[in-house]
């Protein structure tokens, strides 16, 4: 990276994560990913979308440094990823909260592991608990919270360590639709303040189009990048109006058309199997 690029590294279109020739083959022989190449711009929300089992979680965990790729490498600002790092934090689909710890201790856990003092931990945790809208629940235990609230704890924990990149694996998959929509809006509001790079995995086309700046469509297993869409929504209007915008509706249709093709291919493949 040259001097000039360094200086403009916080401009919106700068690549922060580059995925280069990633393949992943699990023990037991499942080829989850093959030849994935991808540049993820800083300061934006990028979504991985694709059929079930296509390797979205696998790719996200490789970026997180939780899984080693079989081939290829991931670079963050040009640095090869060899494991988890303080520049990335992960939000888990099943929240991954410690049931024996209160909300504030859960939120402060990342800070605790990085060796922050108790005062600093609690101060930051308190701030982010308020930011995700859970003020007053600091001393509650996870089992006392609803699914949506638990995921807010998971989000606060990821924000509290102040990583530049937040990786979210289907964060809203196990919350109900109303909570989900509220959460999506809150997330967008929060990101407008926090200026993070977010990589987001979802099953839902509507959710992907609604929250993303960029959507990466992965093909069926072994997953590779099939298509990249940039959505260009006017977010200055109300959520309902955003969902009525032509851009929004067109993107949803376009992505659905591609995913439907995968589905039909799956069906005809299954039919061939039955016949043959």
């Amino acid at each position: 990276m040259n001097q000039v690029a360094e200086k403009v590294s916080n401009s919106a279109d700068d690549t922060i994560v580059s995925v280069d020739g990633i393949a992943k083959r699990y023990e037991g022989g499942v080829q989850a990913l093959k030849g994935v190449n991808l540049d993820i711009p800083a300061g934006q929300l990028t979504t991985f979308l694709g059929p079930s089992g296509c390797g979205k979680t696998t790719l996200l965990k490789i970026i997180a440094g939780l899984l080693d790729p079989t081939e290829g490498e991931v670079r963050i600002r040009g640095q090869k990823v060899t494991g988890p790092g303080p520049d990335r934090s992960f939000v888990f689909q099943d929240f991954a909260l410690m049931p024996w710890a209160t909300v504030i201790r859960n939120v402060a856990f990342g800070l605790e592991l990085s060796g922050a003092s108790k005062e600093e931990r609690y101060e930051k945790a308190t701030k982010y608990i308020a930011e995700v809208g859970l003020k007053g629940f600091e001393d509650a235990y996870p089992h006392e919270l609803s699914g949506g609230m638990r995921q807010r704890v998971g989000l606060a924990r990821a924000l509290a360590v102040n990583a530049d990149i937040i990786l979210m694996d289907e964060p809203f998959a196990s919350v109900d639709e109303q909570t989900r929509r509220k959460f999506q809006d809150d997330l967008l509001d929060l990101l407008a303040i926090e200026k993070k790079t977010v990589i987001f995995v979802t099953h839902s086309i509507e959710e992907a189009v609604y929250v993303s700046d960029q959507i990466v469509l992965l093909s069926r297993r072994p997953g590779k990048v099939a298509n990249i869409f940039t959505t260009d929504l006017d977010r200055s209007v109300s959520p309902d109006e955003v969902r009525r915008q032509k851009n929004y509706l067109d993107s949803v249709d376009e992505i659905w058309a591609i995913l439907r093709e995968y589905l039909q291919e799956d069906e005809s493949a299954a039919a061939r199997k039955v016949r043959g």
């Binding site: 997180a64 440094g65 939780l66 988890p84 790092g85 303080p86 990335r88 934090s89 992960f90 888990f92 689909q93 099943d94 929240f95 991954a96 410690m98 049931p99 024996w100 856990f109 990342g110 592991l113 990085s114 360590v161």
Partner: peptide, 24 residues
């Protein structure tokens, strides 16, 4: 997910063992 979570925040094997496995 719990050990994975701890690893993602930079915990080492021993920390994950004492702080997650034993308590869980």
């Amino acid at each position: 997910s719990l050990p994975e979570m701890a690893f993602s925040f930079g915990a080492n094997g021993w920390t994950v063992f004492t702080r997650i496995y034993l308590l869980a």
